[in-house]
Design a protein around this nucleic acid. Sequence first.
DNA 1: AGTCCACAGGAAGGGCAGGCGA
DNA 2: TCGCCTGCCCTTCCTGTGGACT
Length: 401
Amino acid sequence: MSQSNLQSMFSNYIDQDTFFKNKDALTTNWVPDNILHRDEQIDDLASILAPALRGDDPSNVFIYGSVGTGKSLITRHVTNELHTVAKNESKDLEIVYINCKMKKVADTEYRLLAKLAGQLGDDVPSTGLPTDEVYNRFFEALQEQKGVVIIALDEIDALVKKVGDEFLYNLTRINDDLEETKVSIVGISNDLNFTEYMDSRVKSSLSEEEIIFPPYNAIELREILKDRADKGFREDVLKDGVISKCSALAAQEHGDARRALDLIRVAGELAERSESEQIVKQHVDRAQDKIERDRVVETVRSQPKHSKLVLYTILNATEDENEIATGDVYSEYKELCQNVEVSELTQRRVSGLISELDMLGIINANVKSKGRHGRTREISVDLSSNIKSQIRELVEEKFYI
DNA sequence: AGTCCACAGGAAGGGCAGGCGA
DNA sequence: TCGCCTGCCCTTCCTGTGGACT
């Protein structure tokens, strides 16, 4: 594009009518005034947390439901409202909301405690202190609060699976040592069988109350999406059937409202970029592709270098054959390492990297026993050729292959 | 019934970087 | 500066295992 073209493109961009009235309304972090199809859960959570307004400590609550069923949204909504009322009535109430899955933020016990202390006003360095010192700082910050502190831990299952449930045990016991502060915990989990990972003492004290969030069905999703689209898009930009299509696709993904919103927002962006008059169903198909591609490629990009090399090996090996075993991956990976002059890792580590890639949903690896011929994982890749070639390019660029 | 393959995957610990307090 | 602590990546060592083969 020549420079004058670039300028005219930019000025066109300014003049162009955008499809969006309020793009935030189409993101998952946005909390709408009226939340649809979750009245029961809102009432439940509100009545459990309400005692905080009288200075009593509310029961600990455990919230279950799969991705995109409104758990975080409802928790944020209810706690926001609670906080507003408490403020108006000048009650001592502090709300702390932490997402435990945020990388480098709260994915270890140390980081969680540091983050909790930080939100209560005591800045703790991101590393360097002994964990019990961080715990003490957090404890002191709590004691200074006085009144009720509600700690909402989102995606708590991810943290417990990673570091165990001991920190939860300590958290649930913290009330015994506090004098003027009362702590109540709201645990939010995507995994319905999550409590199996926990010690029974932690389980019973943490799930004094439980709220289940069922998946949305296609009709509910459509209403939710309609509501958000009315707020997010200008009038008449959506062609008939687009909302239904997004809801139907998201309903297949276990009733995931997050996916529905992503689909319609990205479809809007794609339509806008292609200078089309309206958002049509084809844009939704392309949005579906783009979301999946971005997810996979971004995940791969953030992997350590050896993980990339292992994936590259697997991609190449599965080109001629559908499945490959761990041992074969390892020998080809070693060869690749020699070619690109990188010192290779052990088989144990590569085995671990393969599990990680499997958990990230980039490859499929199933343990299979071949009798006399041993036990191994059969590894296959189920990605579109488009995504595969993007990953290859990414790795080749990095290692000058 | 027993053997044995080719790994899976747990446990422990080393080494390094980042960062604190003295 | 030094000693210490944590997280992270990795290695070493180890035990476990489903089912074809003997």
